[in-house]
Each structure stands twice: as C-alpha cells, then as structure tokens.
Write a protein that binds this DNA or RNA. Structure first.
Lengths: 195, 195
DNA sequence: AGTGTAGGCCAACAATTGTTGACATAGCGG
DNA sequence: CCGCTATGTCAACAATTGTTGGCCTACACT
C-alpha cells in the first residue's frame, strides 16, 4: 500500500540521497552545494532538481529521521537514564543523518523547525509516561524532555560537530556512564533539588 | 600602553563590529553577508574590507569572547555547579556574541577551532583546581570540563539557537536550578556512578 | 593656506549559487 | 515495430557573493 511501483531511476534517487546526507553532515546546509552532491552521486545537478524539486525539499528528504526510541515503560525505572544515553549515542554514531540535521539546524530555519518537530513528536511522548510516575504534574513532561534534549544535543555537538578533543576520544561507555545519571535525574527527580 | 592613538574612523569600526555580531548571531557565518552587515552599520561594504581585511578576519574580530569565568576557588565547593550555571546563562543572555560563535561553529571550521580554544584556555584552567579537590587524577580535568561544556552548550543551543519551546519560556532561575546539580556532579563526583 | 593622507563611496569583476529550458536517448507498452 | 515517456545531458540564466581599484572629499598637520 505504502510502496509504489518501482521506478527505473530508484538507484539514482538513492545515490542522490546518500550523497546529500554526507554533504549536509560534513558541510551544513549552506555550504553543501547541489553541484557537489550531484558530483558525489555521479550524475548531473539537474537530476537533483527533477527528483527533489529544490534544495530545501532535498534537505527535507535527506534529513528524515526516526530516532527509534525504545519503549521506556519496559525498562526498569532506575535504568531509564543510562538506557536513553546509550541509545542516543549509538544512534548518532551510526547515522550521519543526525549530524547533518544538527549542523543544518544551527543556521537553517527549516532544519531547526524539523528538530523541534522531532522533539515534540518522538521524544516527548516516549518520555512522558516515565515522568508521570515520578512527578505529579503531567505538564512537566515537555520541560523534562527539553532538559534531556539539551544534554544529548550538547554532547553530540561537542563530539561530532565541534570535535572537542576530550569528548571525541572518550570511549562511548564512559560517555554513557556520565550522561546516564544526568538524564535519569531530569526524568525522574521530583524537583531540581531532589536527587 | 595597550591602547593606540584614537583614529577618526573608530566609530565606523565599532559600528561594523556591532552589526557583524548581530548578523552572525542571527544568520550564522555563511548567511551573514558583508553587504548586509555594512547596510546595518550604515556604510559601504568596502569599508568592511578596508578595516578587517576579509570576511574571515571580520568574524574573528567579532567573535572575540571572554567568558569572564569567576574564580571558582573562592566559591563554596558545593555551590560551584549552580554558580557556573548561572554565570553561563547570564553571559549568554546578555551577549549575542556567544550565540554568534555557537551558530557559526556548527558549519565553519575556523569558528569551531575558536570554540575549542575558548574551552582549553578559559574553561579548563578555571575548572581544574575544583576537579583536583574531588578527584585524585589531575588528567581528568579536561574530560570534566568537556562534560560541563556539553551541558552548557546544549542548553544554549536549545534556548537561543533552536528555540525549543519549553526551554525558551523556562525562567532562567529554573534552568540554573536544573543544570546546577548536573555541572556540580561533572566537576566534583569521584566517578560517574558517584553522586 | 596648502597639502598629504585617511575616510568613504561607486562601479565593477570573477566566481559561485540555485534553477530553468531545450535537446538527446533509451527502454517499455501498444 | 512504433511511439511515448522516463531518464539523462548540455548550456545558460539571473542573482548573489566576496573582493578590488579608482575616485572624490574632508580632516589634520606644517
């Protein structure tokens, strides 16, 4: 139902998308040129326009991200933080699309909007039930999720974008060990002062 | 000694720098054009070139930042985290130069380099003595400082760049209340698992 | 007052960008 | 086998960019 008849140009489409993700991840939105993307994909720049309309739509297609968050209700409450930290780190390590979106979101309004949508549609709902258990006010969920975002995005920024030295070489396990308790507190602490 | 003879063009120079900071903060490095900056400053684009050489050097001049970190050794050890959080938030709130550097660092190599230097030269030294008290290994200081950076930059990213809703409207006091204990732990915990 | 120099503007260049249209070709359906 | 449409290439456009050189003006110093 959701898949259409396979087109002869599917290979080209995919090549464009792959090249676009690489370029957007490496250079950000403005510096990644359609010509460079087309060259990487081994085709003419015109094809990019034909298949994706314009640069903005190409980026939208390239930056389509599913965080694939696990079902946190199935995780022991006191391990939620570390579990989340590990998942995010793993996701970032294996999918350059995440870095592409982050880099672009810093200067491109559309990309920032996309990031906000990801937050609202994917992170908040998953996190809400966990927050609800430890905190009476259900309206707190977005704020808690935002705190989680800030630490996760900040770590990604330092590690994959700024390439801040201590953070780049630090083993993934150590990063999760440090971030885990932080996220745990953001999600399950009754108030900021509580542990 | 450090100040030179005042030049007739000092007003223009300052106007350029102010406009540059605003544009770089609002648009990032690539989208902020010299023409737009000159227009904001009410002068000809040529002046920018004459006084700052080229766009890169202009940015370097505009993004010269002193974090003005307080002397943490004079702060009670258990309040270091909150003190740092408040300082950073305040700094970001009142100086758009910080946002300019952050936005630009996401896509511009030079800006990223600048950010790393700020980290190494300003944050690490201030933080090192605090870390040394709680942790035997002096080589841990950079890693702890990097963790602090990640949370601070992440919060700034969400609040001032991505404008993630819950984070934008959250009162500054509440943000510091949440971030304080996190930074405190990154600095003074003996190991990731310790509180 | 006269002159040299710093401050400023205008026009223009070369390069790059996203984007468009006309034209070729090849493969599939009739 | 014929023709139509999808796929692809080439050349070019219009706009924008950083950047340069020439020219005018006004202030400062002798």
């Amino acid at each position: 139902m959701t898949d259409r008849k396979p087109r002869r140009s599917d290979a080209t489409r995919a090549a464009i998308l792959t090249a676009a993700r690489e370029r957007f991840a490496a250079d950000g939105y403005e510096r990644a040129t359609i010509r460079a993307i087309a060259a990487d994909a081994g085709i003419d720049p015109t094809m990019v326009m034909r298949y994706y309309g314009n640069k903005e739509k190409l980026f939208a297609a390239a930056a389509e991200i599913d965080i694939r968050l696990p079902d946190l209700t199935a995780v022991p409450r006191d391990q939620v933080g570390e579990r989340l930290a590990r998942h995010f780190l793993d996701r970032w390590e294996h999918d350059e699309t995440m870095a592409a979106l982050l880099r672009a979101a810093a200067t491109n309004g559309g990309a920032a909007q996309r990031m906000r949508e990801m937050f609202a549609q994917q992170l908040v709902p998953v996190v809400a039930p966990v927050v609800a258990e430890a905190c009476p006010d259900p309206a707190q969920a977005p704020a808690r999720a935002a705190l989680v975002s800030s630490q996760v995005l900040g770590a990604a920024l330092c590690r994959y974008v700024l390439r801040l030295e201590p953070f780049v070489t630090m083993p993934a396990d150590e990063v999760t060990a440090w971030l885990g308790p932080t996220l745990q507190r953001y999600l399950t602490a009754a108030d900021p002062a509580a542990r």
